[in-house]
Amino acid sequence: MSHAPHLQPHHATRAYWARDAIIPGIYAIAPMLPGTLAFGLAFGAQCAQKQFSLAEVEVMMAIVYGGLSQFVAVQSWPDVLTASTIATLALVTTTVNIRFALMSASLQPWFGTLPPWQAYPSMLLVTDGGWLAAMRYREHGGANAWFFVGGGIVLYFAWLLSSIPGYLLAEQLTDPKKYGVDLVMPAFYAAMLVPAWKGARRAIPWGIAGIVALFVHWLVPGYWFIISGAVAGSVSAGVMGDD
Score class of each variant (00 low, 15 high):
100 F>Q: 04
162 S>T: 06
169 L>N: 10
196 A>R: 07
12 A>E: 11
152 G>Q: 05
137 Y>H: 05
146 W>Y: 07
220 V>P: 03
191 A>V: 01
118 Q>D: 06
126 V>T: 12
42 A>Q: 06
84 S>T: 15
186 P>Q: 07
213 A>H: 10
117 W>F: 13
126 V>F: 01
223 Y>D: 11
209 A>Y: 02
184 V>S: 04
73 A>C: 07
167 Y>H: 07
135 M>P: 01
93 T>Y: 00
209 A>T: 01
22 I>N: 09
188 F>A: 00
1 M>N: 08
19 R>H: 07
127 T>N: 06
194 V>F: 02
240 M>Y: 08
111 F>T: 14
140 H>K: 04
125 L>H: 03
156 Y>G: 01
168 L>M: 15
55 A>N: 08
66 G>E: 08
233 G>F: 02
127 T>H: 00
11 H>P: 01
51 Q>D: 14
46 Q>P: 05
92 V>H: 05
93 T>W: 04
37 L>R: 01
190 A>S: 02
216 V>Q: 05
177 K>D: 07
170 A>T: 09
239 V>P: 02
50 K>M: 13
125 L>S: 06
105 A>N: 03
61 M>T: 12
225 F>P: 03
145 A>P: 05
8 Q>S: 13
71 F>Y: 14
29 I>M: 12
14 R>N: 10
140 H>V: 01
90 A>M: 14
194 V>H: 00
215 F>Y: 14
65 Y>T: 04
15 A>G: 14
123 M>K: 14
225 F>Q: 02
189 Y>W: 12
187 A>R: 01
219 L>N: 03
188 F>C: 03
183 L>C: 11
122 S>N: 08
24 P>R: 15
37 L>D: 03
60 M>F: 05
31 P>Q: 08
228 S>K: 04
64 V>G: 01
75 Q>Y: 10
38 A>D: 06
172 Q>D: 09
86 I>P: 01
224 W>C: 00
69 S>Q: 04
20 D>H: 13
79 D>N: 13
48 A>F: 09
10 H>R: 15
54 L>A: 09
149 V>E: 01
63 I>D: 06
189 Y>G: 01
24 P>K: 13
231 V>M: 10
147 F>S: 11
161 L>S: 09
58 E>R: 14
9 P>F: 07
222 G>I: 04
28 A>H: 08
144 N>H: 06
139 E>L: 12
91 L>H: 04
24 P>C: 07
122 S>C: 12
120 Y>D: 08
16 Y>M: 01
224 W>P: 00
138 R>H: 08
199 G>F: 09
85 T>K: 03
82 T>Q: 09
84 S>V: 15
22 I>T: 13
46 Q>D: 09
93 T>C: 02
98 I>G: 00
93 T>S: 11
46 Q>K: 13
126 V>S: 02
133 A>L: 06
60 M>T: 11
124 L>N: 09
237 A>G: 09
52 F>C: 11
14 R>L: 12
70 Q>F: 06
8 Q>F: 02
160 L>P: 02
114 L>K: 12
208 I>G: 00
119 A>P: 08
215 F>W: 14
117 W>E: 08
85 T>R: 07
243 D>I: 08
111 F>S: 11
124 L>R: 14
1 M>H: 11
171 E>A: 14
236 S>V: 07
45 A>R: 04
52 F>M: 13
117 W>Y: 13
38 A>K: 03
83 A>R: 12
